[in-house]
Design a protein around this nucleic acid. Structure first.
Lengths: 133, 133, 133, 133
DNA sequence: GTGGTCTAGACCACG
DNA sequence: GTGGTCTAGACCACG
């Protein structure tokens, strides 16, 4: 099992619980989380991300409802058999859907192409370092 | 003059007013809407999209605050010459708020750093070419 | 903690939402509302002032955009540490937009330049003293 | 008769027609405009201020309604007998009502007392020069 | 409990 | 004709 790490951004337009749902879903689709793998505990993840545990519970509830994970009484949450597979095209489509508005915003704020590429690279490295810790 | 059309999706996670903001912003970034061009009237656009006029007004108000468009008494809204309103730090903060969730999503979808940088570059060039046409 | 009260006048030339913005801004400028202080809840304040909650929400939204307050998910609005959001030019532009009509009014009321400067200085000192208490 | 000059600020929160009403009213109260004095013609003033003549007409109509000026067929508008006199205290009160929100805005935007005084002085001089042209 | 978004509709202001 | 403000009320999201 790959090391599964979650990165959330508070104060963004996207609700925290949706960021969690979307990343767990993506991790399963990408195979980062395999069938049978355990998820972080509700309270553990809440503590790690410094958010309310209800927020984590709500995210997991949605994933249970969608059949992607299941609760095993007293042991925690685990990835179930049902697995969504995203094609490469679908995965690209999902990322591009986030890249496009980011570029629009940057452009209207006056960033030129080089500055933007540099900023994105810097952020990628920053998150990369964070993941390795 | 601009041939400018707007498409909204109701029932999406993204609020209608934010979809309008993003699309106008994208049109300005891409040069589809140029300085001096008029936007659809608040009530006209509301009727066309079959939404409430307050929703359009809210979207336009945000674009005014960002200095992208301005209201001319009794005439409507027009694209303005871009002013530098925000400090470098604030502009960076705003773009980073969009870059971070994009990277998180890409990472959980299995993109590695190089692939992501290439994807972002490709999209930047795509928009760049559009602007030059 | 702040003992902070708001007074609005309906039927005035100044929109209600703008009166709220001005008064919160004045309270922050005077130090009556300090960093970390909570604002009245949107619906609570609306009930107290006997106005619609959307009107309060609109006022708070403007203060958020200016970086003076921020919303904490499910908890309410709080005064933030002031960030430098706007460029010097933009900040000057905003203040000059208030200075100009003030000078025009003073001039037509018969104030000469020296009297006006003195009056402005006196008011600035008055607020300055209030902040230091 | 003193030279009567009007200064308007477009794009401010205060509607143009209200700026005109308020300045004519103030000029009469201050004696800058005396009984029998003529006002600039509707179209002349509109041309001078580069605004729609309906805006001037609307302002004059309000002043006529309030009995401060009257139209003399084919000759223009003139100050009538009825005259409001503002006491010094009232005139000060009216200017202070504009000074206070200006200071709040400047303070929350990060201007310190000296900077603000300098900015106000500069604007006073600027308008002073404009009036003398 | 907190805030966010949207609608339907009114009434007003500006040109 | 254009936009601006406000209400009453609904429904949802977050914690």
């Amino acid at each position: 099992m790959a090391l599964f790490s979650l990165q959330i951004t508070t104060g963004s337009d996207v609700p925290i619980f949706r960021q969690i749902v979307s990343q767990v879903r993506a991790a399963i689709a990408a195979g980062t989380l395999a069938v049978g793998d355990g998820l972080p505990s509700v309270r553990g993840l809440a503590a790690e991300l410094v958010i309310n545990h209800n927020t984590v519970a709500k995210a997991y509830a949605e994933l249970v409802r969608d059949g992607l994970i299941e609760s095993q009484q007293g042991r925690g949450y685990f990835v179930t058999l049902r697995r969504e597979i995203y094609t490469k095209a679908e995965r690209t489509r999902r990322v591009v859907a986030l890249i496009e508005p980011m570029i629009s915003e940057a452009t209207t704020l006056g960033f030129d192409d080089d500055e933007l590429i540099k900023l994105v690279s810097k952020e990628i490295e920053k998150l990369s370092r964070k993941r390795k810790q």
